[in-house]
Amino acid sequence: MTADRHEALEHLRRLAAQLEAHSFRVRLETPAEPFPHLHVINPMVPARTEDVLAAHEEDGEWWFWLSWAGRLGHAGDVATVAERVVSVLHVIRR
Rank of each mutant, 00 (worst) to 15 (best):
M1T: 08
M1G: 07
M1P: 01
T2V: 00
T2N: 08
T2A: 14
A3N: 04
A3D: 11
A3Q: 08
D4P: 07
D4W: 06
D4F: 08
R5K: 08
R5G: 03
E7G: 03
E7I: 07
E7K: 09
E7V: 07
A8V: 00
L9C: 14
E10V: 13
E10L: 08
H11D: 00
H11F: 14
R13D: 04
R13V: 10
L15F: 04
L15T: 07
A16T: 00
A16D: 02
A17I: 12
A17S: 05
E20H: 05
E20Y: 01
A21S: 08
A21F: 05
H22K: 11
S23L: 03
S23C: 01
V26C: 03
R27V: 03
L28H: 12
E29R: 13
E29C: 07
T30G: 04
E33G: 05
E33P: 04
P34T: 02
P34A: 08
P34G: 04
F35T: 06
F35C: 10
P36I: 03
P36Q: 09
H37W: 00
L38F: 01
L38W: 00
H39D: 13
V40C: 02
I41T: 10
N42H: 10
N42Q: 06
N42E: 03
P43M: 06
P43S: 04
P43H: 11
M44E: 15
V45Y: 15
V45E: 08
V45R: 15
P46C: 14
A47G: 14
R48V: 10
R48E: 04
R48C: 06
T49M: 11
T49I: 08
E50I: 11
D51N: 14
V52K: 00
L53M: 04
L53Y: 10
L53D: 00
A54Q: 04
A54E: 08
A54I: 03
A55G: 15
A55M: 10
H56I: 14
H56A: 12
E58P: 09
D59K: 12
D59H: 13
D59V: 11
G60R: 15
E61D: 14
E61L: 13
E61R: 13
W62M: 10
W63A: 13
F64W: 13
W65D: 00
L66Y: 07
L66P: 11
S67Y: 11
W68E: 14
A69N: 15
A69K: 15
G70L: 09
G70R: 12
L72V: 13
G73K: 07
G73M: 06
H74F: 06
A75R: 00
A75W: 06
G76A: 01
G76N: 12
V78Q: 03
V78T: 05
V78G: 02
V78C: 09
T80M: 13
V81M: 12
A82Q: 08
A82R: 02
E83S: 13
V86G: 00
V86H: 02
V86E: 07
S87R: 14
S87H: 12
V88A: 12
L89S: 09
L89K: 02
V91S: 04
I92C: 03
I92H: 07
R93W: 11
R93L: 07
R93N: 06
R94C: 09
